[in-house]
């Protein structure tokens, strides 16, 4: 698994165990925190408080179900464009202004803005790409996935 940097932020062993143990398999039961806290050997209230603390500190982006829109008849589509340096922030605002844009990253490449469209209907991708091209005045490259070889989000701390 992926190694953690030595200077990782303030996270103690209990937090570490929580993150390692709870990246999947959180139970669908009426008292799920109670069951998991028992396995971790801490009180239910402490587990909830620590998760809240890690969310507030930004160590976790969220706690809950990770939905796979592909299995809902929808689709994610990776896209990229080249934003001129002097218009970068303006272009980012325009792109981020589309509700369908779920993530957007600046990357160090000629194609310097990479964003993910989350759409319920894959057939809506081309029209949305066109709208983003019109709004930005820039060419947008769409990279729909053609095959998924592996998806794994887990990190080990």
């Amino acid at each position: 698994m992926t190694a953690l940097a030595q200077d990782a932020p303030d996270i103690d062993d209990t937090d570490r165990h929580i993150v390692n143990a709870l990246q999947g398999g959180f139970p669908l039961t009426e008292r799920p925190f109670h069951a998991e806290a028992g396995l971790l050997g801490i009180p239910e209230g402490e587990l909830i408080a620590r998760l809240r603390g890690m969310l507030e500190a930004g160590l976790l982006t969220r706690f809950g179900p990770l939905y796979n829109i592909d299995r809902m008849g929808g689709s994610f589509c990776l896209c990229a464009l080249t934003a001129p340096a002097d218009r970068f922030d303006e272009i980012a605002d325009i792109v981020n202004g589309f509700a369908e844009v779920a993530h957007n990253y600046e990357r160090d490449h000629r194609l310097n803005m990479w964003f993910v469209l989350a759409l319920e209907r894959p057939e809506d991708v081309p029209e949305l790409v066109e709208r983003i091209e019109e709004a930005t005045g820039l060419q947008v490259f769409a990279f729909p996935k053609e095959a998924e070889y592996f998806v794994e989000f887990k990190v080990s701390l």
């Binding site: 992926t2 953690l4 940097a5 030595q6 200077d7 990782a8 932020p9 996270i11 929580i18 993150v19 709870l22 990246q23 999947g24 398999g25 959180f26 669908l28 039961t29 009426e30 998760l51 890690m54 500190a57 930004g58 160590l59 976790l60 982006t61 969220r62 706690f63 809950g64 179900p65 990770l66 939905y67 796979n68 299995r71 809902m72 998806v151 989000f153 990190v155 701390l157």
Partner: peptide, 29 residues
Amino acid sequence: VLARMARMLEAGAIRRIGAVPNHFRLGLI
């Protein structure tokens, strides 16, 4: 809620339920 989420999990509409780490903040910068 439990039955419907179990069905979505079974069908893969929910990949998993749990903590989603922030790679940047966890030092995987």
